[in-house]
Computed example of a mutant assay.
Amino acid sequence: MPSSLFPFSLLGSDSASAARLGIFRTPRGEIETPSFMPVGTAATVKGLTVDQVRQTGAQMILGNTYHLALRPGHELIRQLGGLHAFMGWDGPILTDSGGFQIFSLAALAEIREEAATFRSHIDGSVVRLSPERSIEIQEALGSDVAMVLDHVVALPGEREVVLEAMDRSIRWAARCLNAATREDQARFAIVQGGLDAGLRRYCAAEMSKMDFEGFAVGGLSVGEPPAEMYRVLDATCPLLPAERPRYLMGVGRPIDLLEGVARGIDLFDCVMPTRNGRNALAFTDEGPLRMRNASHRDDARPLESDCPCLACRHSRAYIRHLFAAGEMLGPILLSHHNLTYYQRLLARARTAIREGRFSEMLAQHRRLWAVAA
């Protein structure tokens, strides 16, 4: 049976969509959903202290099994008190299983039923990652939520390739569940199946037969058009257990978050806020602002007048100056702004669901961002 330490409660829903308001409870705190998790791949959200991450409104963050196992090593992290103590974050942490790294390092990988074997991106040494090994590492890290190891493939893909990866993901999920020993760690399954709605439905149904504390939709945001992603969510989400949290992995743009919420997604993560921040792009309701542009040279306005982030204490002109001068403060400020923007967006979505006007909010932002594009 799923652990009683990780209950999920539905508090409300939107009458015109599948959007839902909930609370995912963990021993280290509650997550109000829908919610966005900043990505802290190597035990740090790039450029920000944990206090600054918390200041953005983040409730839960994400770490990565593969990267932390290679450097500094999961046994060292266990020795130093676990991932929470190691990085100084006392809230909930979700760890990805390494499945995406198998995909991203495909040229260096050999995938067999027993395990994936590939070369380290750091020193070229051989890395062998099986479902059991992934769970072993995540239990050593001590994360609150451990993802199952899955087989991700490029999209679009031949049906036979997608089918084989989906079937393997189901078998690997069962092996992850059987290998798990920690009662204080939740396990999330990952639904695969490419862009094939039938395979997605089948995978969702098979994963739902197993006792997971949550369910993720994976293998998306790998280059497919947004409309295809939304179609996959339309096919998949209705078959996932309503009493468990639903997590859309690696997505994405602000509009993708709201479209995911409209289809019943509760949790999101993506590197986009921080990666774009480091590259001088700020997210706003006006659309993205490219802060290296000359149009901001003498602009005294903040990025957003009502934003409480560190960047919005300064003018657009100052932020542009930081990037022009190559000052490290520029990426830090925009990373903080973008994460704050994502948290505020989903906080507004939660309020809109609670007040019965989420569909109105979604329609408004579709119009805003269509004009900005």
Score class of each variant (00 low, 15 high):
residue 174 A to L: 13
residue 321 H to N: 12
residue 339 L to R: 02
residue 141 L to E: 02
residue 191 V to D: 01
residue 264 G to A: 08
residue 254 P to K: 09
residue 288 P to R: 05
residue 292 R to W: 03
residue 276 N to M: 11
residue 203 C to N: 02
residue 128 R to W: 08
residue 91 G to V: 15
residue 311 A to V: 13
residue 57 G to R: 09
residue 21 L to P: 05
residue 8 F to A: 01
residue 38 P to K: 01
residue 123 D to R: 07
residue 125 S to R: 11
residue 43 A to D: 05
residue 153 V to I: 15
residue 88 G to R: 11
residue 187 R to C: 09
residue 228 E to N: 04
residue 124 G to V: 12
residue 126 V to H: 04
residue 191 V to A: 02
residue 351 T to N: 07
residue 269 D to F: 13
residue 229 M to Q: 14
residue 317 A to E: 14
residue 93 I to H: 05
residue 246 R to A: 00
residue 249 M to G: 07
residue 370 A to V: 02
residue 20 R to M: 10
residue 323 F to I: 15
residue 143 S to I: 12
residue 252 G to R: 14
residue 325 A to H: 10
residue 37 M to P: 01
residue 204 A to E: 06
residue 203 C to Q: 00
residue 30 E to V: 00
residue 17 S to Q: 07
residue 18 A to P: 06
residue 266 D to V: 14
residue 368 L to S: 03
residue 66 Y to N: 04
residue 255 I to T: 07
residue 78 R to F: 15
residue 265 I to P: 04
residue 160 E to C: 06
residue 148 V to Q: 03
residue 168 R to H: 05
residue 305 S to C: 07
residue 60 M to P: 02
residue 14 D to C: 13
residue 237 C to K: 05
residue 371 V to D: 07
residue 345 L to W: 05
residue 203 C to M: 01
residue 125 S to V: 14
residue 103 F to S: 06
residue 164 E to P: 04
residue 241 P to I: 13
residue 121 H to N: 01
residue 77 I to E: 09
residue 347 A to D: 04
residue 267 L to N: 00
residue 163 L to F: 07
residue 135 I to H: 01
residue 328 M to C: 08
residue 179 A to P: 04
residue 217 V to H: 12
residue 289 L to C: 08
residue 177 L to W: 13
residue 21 L to F: 10
residue 285 D to E: 12
residue 234 D to A: 14
residue 175 R to W: 10
residue 249 M to E: 05
residue 313 R to F: 00
residue 79 Q to R: 14
residue 298 D to K: 09
residue 211 D to A: 14
residue 90 D to R: 10
residue 355 E to H: 14
residue 191 V to W: 15
residue 85 A to S: 10
residue 63 G to N: 11
residue 336 H to K: 04
residue 167 D to V: 10
residue 269 D to Q: 08
residue 96 D to F: 07
residue 151 H to M: 09
residue 354 R to N: 05
residue 215 F to E: 03
residue 372 A to T: 12
residue 218 G to P: 08
residue 200 R to D: 02
residue 292 R to V: 12
residue 22 G to K: 11
residue 188 F to G: 00
residue 105 L to A: 00
residue 355 E to I: 15
residue 48 L to A: 04
residue 210 M to H: 14
residue 255 I to S: 05
residue 95 T to G: 09
residue 243 E to G: 04
residue 154 A to K: 14
residue 234 D to W: 08
residue 244 R to N: 00
residue 135 I to V: 13
residue 329 L to G: 01
residue 65 T to K: 02
residue 59 Q to P: 04
residue 109 A to I: 07
residue 137 I to N: 00
residue 50 V to Q: 09
residue 67 H to Q: 07
residue 275 R to C: 09
residue 359 S to W: 12
residue 254 P to F: 12
residue 62 L to K: 00
residue 34 P to K: 06
residue 281 L to R: 12
residue 303 L to N: 00
residue 150 D to V: 13
residue 231 R to Q: 09
residue 58 A to C: 05
residue 56 T to P: 08
residue 278 R to L: 09
residue 150 D to M: 11
residue 36 F to H: 04
residue 59 Q to K: 10
residue 90 D to Q: 11
residue 253 R to C: 06
residue 205 A to W: 03
residue 224 E to V: 05
residue 204 A to D: 06
residue 299 D to L: 03
residue 10 L to R: 10
residue 187 R to V: 15
residue 287 G to T: 10
residue 262 A to H: 07
residue 179 A to I: 10
residue 255 I to C: 01
residue 100 F to S: 14
residue 321 H to Y: 08
residue 8 F to K: 02
residue 247 Y to F: 10
residue 292 R to Y: 01
residue 201 R to G: 06
residue 278 R to S: 03
